[in-house]
């Protein structure tokens, strides 16, 4: 395993770890940690109306649970004080001058994005094959039932592999179908939707940009759907989240559901 991150052997590596871009004047949450152990103090670097929230980058920064959590928690707290453009985990500016130059160059885009996410949160919905639905599947899927009968008549390795493969694909198909239905149900409550990164085994992964005031209603709707379709899909709803998926124009357009294995 290689370590490509900065490695100076000191407590802090070179550079500034950048958590987010916020409106200048946004207060930093009190008692908030950051990445690194111990976390370096947080501060803001403001250029005009926008500011970056940074700390000294730790040496040997890696995607460890503790640091991922620190990143996520700080962004969540920042969102309590105003709109936040979350950085992807692990962005390190080489120095403050470079950061200031970047903030100045990207100012119009940052301000537009801050306006867009203001008052909104991200909700993420994943549709997974329902693990408890095997009996329903066998009862409802003719192919699986036929293969199961064949396996029982003539047991064998090949027959079992065929049966298991059919089960796996049927589970994924049912989850995908239910996922597309829930997407239709939830999309009207969102200002925008964005397909999430592909997650192995996940039939659908979509994020919704939802007005803060609607987040409870959104979750309740998703949970009602999940309860009504538990034989077909396991829905996992996460949020309110910082608007990871809605910080750029590139990945903001509504997209077709992202399928997985």
């Amino acid at each position: 395993m290689r370590a490509d991150g900065p490695d100076t052997g000191t407590a802090d590596g070179p550079g500034l770890y950048v958590y987010a871009v916020v409106r200048a004047g946004t207060p930093l949450p009190r008692k908030s940690g950051g990445v690194g152990s111990p976390p370096a103090p947080l501060r803001t670097v403001a250029v005009g109306p926008a500011a970056a929230v940074v700390s000294a980058a730790p040496a040997q920064l890696r995607a460890r649970r503790r640091d991922l959590l620190a990143h996520q928690e700080l962004l969540t707290r920042l969102a309590g004080s105003g709109p936040v453009l979350p950085m992807r985990f692990g962005m390190v500016a080489p120095d403050e001058d470079a950061l200031r130059a970047q903030l100045a160059a990207a100012e119009p885009g940052h301000l537009a994005a801050l306006d867009r996410v203001a008052g909104h949160i991200e909700m993420n919905v994943k549709a997974l094959p329902a693990p408890d639905s095997l009996a329903a599947l066998v009862a409802g899927d003719a192919t699986v039932r036929r293969l199961r009968d064949e396996t029982r008549r003539r047991p064998g390795y090949e027959a079992n592999v065929r049966l298991g493969e059919a089960v796996a694909s049927a589970l994924a198909r049912r989850a995908g179908e239910a996922g597309r239905r829930v997407l239709r149900d939830l999309a009207p409550m969102a200002r925008a939707t964005a397909g999430g990164p592909e997650v192995p085994g996940c039939a659908l992964n979509v994020s919704f940009l939802v007005a803060q005031a609607d987040s409870d209603r959104f979750r309740a709707t998703a949970e009602r759907f999940a309860a009504a379709h538990r034989d077909h899909v396991e829905l996992r709803v996460a949020g309110p989240l910082p608007c990871y998926s809605f910080v750029g124009a590139a990945n903001e357009s509504p997209r077709a559901p992202v399928g997985g294995g």
Binding site: H71, L85, R88, G90, N205, L241, P242, V247, N251
Partner: peptide
């Protein structure tokens, strides 16, 4: 996956 693959 959002923390690692989304965000600015």
């Amino acid at each position: 996956e959002l923390i690692l693959d989304r965000g600015m």
